[in-house]
Amino acid sequence: MNAKAEAGATGLDTAKLAAAAVLLVAGIYGFYYFAAYSTLLRVGGLLAISAVAAAVALQTEQGRRLWQFTGNARTEVRKVVWPTRQETLQTTLVVIVMVLILGIVLWLFDTILMAILRFLTGQGG
């Protein structure tokens, strides 16, 4: 029975998603079609049409799952223990110092290998 319920909802969900896509395309077309009007009005209209399209898309099973995922992600972000300002600055300083040291080491290797190559090929003067 569950498979039948999902199969019935899939056709309606597809129609809703198609309607949302048509709304978005119409909104984008309208944005460029009414180029003579104020940009503020066109952007407002495009945002309004996009909001309606998003509302239609969220009425589908995929939309509900996306909304649930977003809520779960927000809950998980709240559980994160964020580093303090001092920890962030110290970590950033360590990264910068290590990048500089590695850059100098690679530059030295490059210089030494180039000197050896010039010596072996006799192109170094």
Rank of each mutant, 00 (worst) to 15 (best):
V95N: 04
F69Y: 05
Q90H: 12
Q123C: 07
A9R: 12
T10E: 15
A115C: 08
Y33D: 04
F34V: 03
A7E: 15
Q86W: 05
L24H: 03
A36P: 01
A35W: 02
A3I: 11
L117H: 07
A26N: 11
E6Q: 10
F119H: 05
E87V: 06
G8W: 04
F34K: 03
A57I: 06
G30I: 00
A48W: 00
N2C: 05
L120Q: 10
M114L: 14
E61K: 14
L102T: 07
S38P: 02
V81Q: 12
K16R: 15
I28W: 00
E6D: 14
P83H: 09
L58P: 01
R74Q: 13
I49R: 00
L93Y: 02
K79V: 04
E87W: 02
T10M: 14
L24D: 01
W107N: 14
I96N: 08
A21G: 07
F119M: 05
V105Q: 05
L108Q: 13
G8N: 13
A54N: 10
L120I: 09
W82M: 05
Q86H: 10
A55T: 13
G71I: 13
A9C: 07
L113F: 13
L66D: 04
V22P: 01
A36H: 05
N2M: 06
K79Q: 10
G71Y: 06
R78I: 06
Q123E: 15
L120P: 00
M98L: 12
G44K: 04
I104Y: 03
V81K: 11
L47I: 14
S50I: 08
G122Y: 04
L100K: 04
I49Y: 01
A57M: 11
M114P: 02
V94W: 05
L12E: 08
V22Y: 03
A115P: 00
T39S: 05
L106D: 08
E76N: 07
A55W: 11
I112E: 14
R42F: 02
E87I: 08
T121C: 06
L89I: 15
I49M: 05
R78C: 09
K4F: 10
V25A: 12
L40V: 15
V95A: 07
A48T: 08
S50E: 08
T10Q: 15
W107D: 10
F34D: 10
N72H: 02
A21E: 14
V77C: 05
E87D: 13
L17Y: 00
R78E: 07
F109W: 02
L117D: 13
L46K: 00
L108E: 11
F34N: 03
A36F: 01
L24Y: 00
G11Y: 04
A15Q: 08
D13R: 04
Q86G: 10
T60D: 11
W82H: 09
K4T: 15
I112S: 12
A54F: 11
A26P: 01
Q123L: 14
A48N: 01
T84Q: 10
A3P: 04
E6R: 11
S50F: 03
A55N: 15
Y33G: 01
P83I: 10
A21N: 14
S38E: 12
A53H: 00
A55H: 13
